[in-house]
Design a protein around this nucleic acid. Structure first.
Lengths: 202, 202
DNA sequence: TTAATTTCGAACCGTTGCGTCTCGCATTAA
DNA sequence: TTAATGCGAGACGCAACGGTTCGAAATTAA
């Protein structure tokens, strides 16, 4: 064990981590996975394209999936949109359209697909992925639901947790099962189903 | 190319395929994936446990995922339940409960998870999996929806295709994203949302 | 300035499983 | 019988893993 001579607050001793290498690695991984596919993606290949040694990757990431997850966060900034549009239906509709548009980007969609796949196969990565991505998205939608609850705007029928399951369920199912366009029509159909007060009378 | 000397109807020449080996392989794969996990599952390991040569596996299946998909069909018989219960709500409720109960079996759930994961990573297997499993399940639920349509029992609000996406979306999302029990309460909540005529007045 | 610490790129190596191939034997139709 | 096919077993070359070691460079505390 290294003895603890540093002051409790950071200020480590030696050479700093190279931000340049970090970005080169993330960029190389993002490009390569698109060119050769996830199965053929290798740490050695990433290192070669990034112009760094394998060890520099192994030092900071436990697997290629971890690299890609960080690359996803770096390249496709996940804009969480939970602005207040005045009503539950409007909020939900906006959330769905934005989320679907993001999930419709082919590069993003491809990454999401292989990452959730790897999360099933590698339990260690699964934890990171669930906490770092899936739960965050659920939290974002929960903001919308909580606001609707305070407004008294929330239908009683599908329980809030069920709404979460339906929204993200449909999103992921379309990505994984039968790749289909994730269009606005689906978003509106879902909105009408989950927030009937919008399209109906009143 | 082998010349076509056989009569058009089967009746090949040489030794027949060993049904004993086939079942030994499927059983070994089913056991091993549970013991060591999908990532550590190897063709060599399956062959060793089944007491057969590697070639006997490679001759009949292109990958371990294909083996497991056949093992799933062999072990967990997928009972598709589309009996007529008199109303759309009752049919849907029964379908959901049965499907959820099946997906709740830990062994089955584990297999489903790794198979849809592999389908994302290996496109060749993806086609087989979508056609042989995902589409079949959609077809089963479509029977229920078509019958409801003929009865005039079908709500206008969620389009039939959207119902498919919601039902299977929630099912798969629960399996993949946040392993939760898939209980009857969820099935009933979904039924009430998709077939409101049931819980409501009239 | 100096010494300690840490990262860097590069190379090496043992292990593992893949996928192909070959062997000798068993089984079956012609 | 003869030809064709499936079988178990195992050898083979290949690719990638993942862990280690090396010298050089960079950074910071003393």
């Amino acid at each position: 064990m290294t003895e603890n001579r540093q002051p409790a607050t950071g200020a480590k001793r030696g050479r700093k981590r190279s931000e340049e290498s970090r970005q080169a690695i993330l960029g190389a991984a993002f490009e390569l996975v698109d060119e050769v596919g996830y199965a053929a993606l290798t740490i050695e290949g990433i290192a070669a394209r990034a112009g760094c040694g394998k060890q520099t990757i192994y030092r900071w990431w436990p697997s290629k999936a971890h690299v890609l997850m960080e690359a996803l966060a770096a390249e496709g900034e996940l804009g969480v949109t939970t602005a207040d549009h005045g009503s539950y239906a409007a909020d939900l509709r906006a959330f769905l359209r934005d989320t679907f548009r993001l999930g419709g980007e082919p590069r993003i969609a491809g990454l999401l697909r292989v990452l959730i796949a790897e999360a099933q196969i590698d339990p260690r990565f699964g934890e990171v992925f669930r906490a770092g991505l899936l739960e965050r998205r659920r939290d974002a939608l929960r903001v919308v639901l909580d606001r609707a609850g305070e407004r008294g705007d929330l239908p009683s029928r599908p329980a809030p947790d069920t709404v979460l399951d339906i929204v993200f369920g449909v999103l992921w199912y379309r990505l994984l099962a039968i790749p289909q366009p994730l269009d606005d029509a689906l978003a509106d159909d879902l909105t009408a189903t989950l927030a009937p007060s919008a399209g109906g009378p009143a």
